[in-house]
């Protein structure tokens, strides 16, 4: 096994274990901390796939902004209660079965993609995923969606400020 395979399995292990801890830990603060660990593992995956720009943006946006927001809301609302009641057992059983079926469906649908990918891997010599390459694509081919996403941010900001006002009339 090569070094990149060891890194791949290590990062996948960390990501899956901490994702399970997000779901099954009792206190929301532990969920947030596990989620940060998952995000760092996924950023490592991005680096392994040589998507440096996305790895940096992922760390900044998720670990920097979104997680701070989550922690801030948990502490502001004082939601850190240990005794969260569980759902009914039959709902949990149904959920596990449904998720198993969902994963089987996803894998069965997507695993045909490998037949296409390795034949094209030789094309991958332009250094995709660097800031330079992504910037060229983003500001030529995807310029309109990029500008529209700024309007999305503006409306999200206005919406968030409006929703968190004291008296909504």
């Amino acid at each position: 096994m090569s070094i990149s395979q060891y890194i791949f399995w290590f990062l996948s292990f960390v990501a899956l274990i901490s994702a399970l801890m997000v779901v099954f830990s009792k206190s929301p603060v532990y969920s947030v901390l596990s989620l940060i660990m998952t995000f760092f593992a996924i950023a490592g995956h991005y680096l392994l796939l040589s998507a440096q720009f996305l790895a940096a943006v992922h760390i900044i946006v998720y670990a920097g902004a979104i997680m701070v927001l989550f922690l801030y809301v948990i502490m502001m609302l004082n939601l850190n209660k240990e005794a969260e009641p569980h759902k009914k057992p039959y709902i949990q059983i149904i959920s596990f079965v449904a998720i198993g079926l969902l994963m089987v469906t996803l894998i069965g649908t997507l695993k045909e993609a490998e037949a296409i990918a390795p034949s094209n891997i030789a094309n991958n010599v332009g250094g995709i995923g660097t800031v330079e390459q992504l910037g060229k694509v983003l500001f030529n081919q995807f310029l309109l969606p990029f500008e529209i996403s700024s309007i999305l941010f503006l409306s999200a900001m206005v919406g968030a400020v409006y929703l968190s006002k004291k008296n909504l009339q």
Binding site: H45, Y46, L49, S50, A51, F53, L54, V57, H58, V61, Y62, A113, I116, A117, P118, N120, I121, N123, N124, V125, G126, I128, G129, Q133, L134, V137, L138, Q141, F142, P145, S149, L152, F153
Partner: peptide
Amino acid sequence: VAFSSYLGDNSGQVFVFFIMA
């Protein structure tokens, strides 16, 4: 991102950028 890297196509990573936004 995995598909984009294996296919050698930048568009997938731009989609990820928009999904993050």
